[in-house]
Write a protein that binds this DNA or RNA. Structure first.
Length: 311
DNA sequence: AAACTATCCTGGAGGC
DNA sequence: TGCCTCCAGGATAGTT
């Protein structure tokens, strides 16, 4: 479940191996991913320099320059990669032996002394290219909303997008047309932090709640990036190490446990209510929340969950 | 326009 | 041990 923090972590880890480097050799083992890998993509990548790695939403963009004269001209060429549900990269030292792909290895890139391998068990990931002047025009990005950690995501615009929508605020956070990069984990965590019930209709949120939610989304994403993302089931960091943010989950995958805020309140005052994180299925996805901190009926006071603990 | 639902895919967990 | 069913979920196509 790579979301923005996991993609960002992957990108930053890959940078030293790829940015400014020449692609010596590419092998593609699987064409059938979420989208068919273009014919001859590997061949067209070979001999080119990777000028820059960047990210848009949950997509990685590798900008290539140059290229073999004998190959039809695709310059400028960008490689678009999405990790889907289970996509991951690993880096191995080139050892002089022929590379033996492991199960679910779909692409191997030789770059200097390293081999960079894309592995994706569920094949929901994507490797595609874009040949055009401006990668912003790539069809994958056309309908995407603003980046949550940029100024492009403004309070007024966000509030306006929500105020006419009957659908739940949780669903809105997952809608990449509204704002990008948020998946199920961080939607749950941000709603908890903001004290907003996941089932609340988007239009029912007060202005101050939308403002708080924005701040919480940003705090959660920044904290997760600082921890190199979360490791849960499929996602792993390139080094094979695990990300650290799952240690900080307050509600996600914690059904039946008490949330940190209620636990703390208990310590200070044994008469304060016991909480028990609940799991519901919403739009086919699990939502986890604390029914005490995230009341469905409109809160009469500001949420008691502080954002500073993760900011 | 907006709100749903089905679909792609595999590994892992739990039941028996 | 093995067989079965269910679940995880990002994005999108299709339907109401």
């Amino acid at each position: 479940m790579p979301e923005l923090p996991e993609v960002e972590t992957t990108l930053q880890t890959l940078k030293p191996y790829l940015e400014g480097k020449l692609i010596d050799r590419v092998e593609i083992y699987t064409k059938k991913l979420r989208v068919m890998v273009p014919e001859n993509l590997g061949h067209r990548m070979e001999g080119r320099k990777i000028s820059r790695l960047s990210r848009r939403a949950k997509y990685m963009i590798w900008a290539l320059e140059g290229g073999a004269e004998t190959v039809e001209s695709f310059s400028p060429l960008a490689i678009i990669i999405h990790l889907g549900m289970s996509g991951r990269f690993r880096v191995e030292a080139k050892d002089g032996q022929a590379f033996q792909p492991l199960k679910h290895d779909h692409m191997m890139i030789e770059c200097g002394d390293s081999r960079i391998i894309f592995n994706d068990a569920r094949r929901f990931g994507l490797i595609d290219d874009y040949a055009g002047e401006s990668v912003e025009n790539c069809h994958y990005f056309k309908h995407l909303g603003p980046e949550p950690l940029s100024d492009a995501w403004g309070l007024g615009t966000f509030f306006d997008a929500l105020k006419s929508r009957q659908t739940s605020i949780k669903q809105m956070l997952l809608d990449q047309k509204i704002v990008v990069g948020i998946g199920n984990i961080y939607a749950n965590e941000a709603l908890y932090m903001a004290g907003i019930h996941p089932l609340r209709p988007a239009k029912s949120l007060e202005f101050y709640e939308v403002k708080s939610l924005m701040e919480c989304v940003r705090a959660v994403l920044r904290a997760a990036i600082a921890q190199s993302g979360s490791t849960l089931r499929d996602y792993r960091r390139i080094s094979g190490e695990i990300g650290g943010f799952q240690e900080h989950f307050q509600v996600y995958d914690r059904e039946g446990k008490s949330c940190p805020a209620c636990e703390k309140a208990q310590k200070n005052n044994p008469d304060s209510p016991h909480c028990c994180v609940q799991r519901i299925v919403q739009n086919g996805r699990s939502s986890f929340f604390c029914a005490i901190k995230q009341r469905y009926t409109r809160n009469t006071e500001l949420p008691g969950v502080v954002t500073s603990r993760l900011a």
